[in-house]
Amino acid sequence: MKVDAKDRITVAQTAIIVTNFLLGTGILTLPRTSVEKVKTPDVWITVLFGGLVAILVSYIMVKLSREYPDKTFY
């Protein structure tokens, strides 16, 4: 069976997949460890706020990337 070049996962796709797995694991374990440390169930508010901040920053990064496609943060 011959493997075509477009059937392979690129380095960028691999980095995105690994990053998403790490973030997903962090999102699933963060509330529990936070509640254990703080001893109150109100931690969900901070988790929600942190998620909203991450979404806002991601949105700004996407807009900047589309506005300046040849520029990078480095």
Score class of each variant (00 low, 15 high):
7 D>N: 15
47 V>D: 00
13 Q>Y: 06
51 G>M: 05
51 G>E: 01
30 L>H: 03
45 I>T: 06
44 W>N: 07
58 S>H: 02
19 T>E: 11
47 V>I: 11
45 I>F: 01
51 G>Q: 01
39 K>Q: 14
69 P>S: 07
71 K>P: 00
21 F>P: 05
11 V>Q: 07
42 D>V: 06
12 A>D: 11
12 A>P: 08
17 I>A: 04
7 D>M: 11
67 E>G: 13
67 E>H: 12
59 Y>R: 02
43 V>G: 01
4 D>C: 01
14 T>Y: 15
42 D>Y: 06
42 D>N: 14
1 M>P: 12
56 L>C: 02
3 V>I: 15
52 L>F: 02
15 A>T: 12
26 G>P: 03
43 V>L: 06
7 D>F: 10
54 A>G: 06
35 V>P: 00
29 T>V: 13
73 F>Q: 10
29 T>Y: 07
2 K>H: 05
73 F>I: 14
48 L>A: 15
36 E>C: 03
34 S>E: 03
43 V>W: 03
58 S>P: 04
74 Y>D: 09
65 S>W: 02
22 L>I: 08
37 K>D: 09
63 K>M: 09
66 R>T: 07
74 Y>S: 13
8 R>P: 03
25 T>E: 08
26 G>I: 04
49 F>W: 05
66 R>A: 02
43 V>Y: 00
23 L>N: 07
49 F>C: 02
74 Y>C: 05
53 V>S: 02
34 S>G: 08
46 T>V: 04
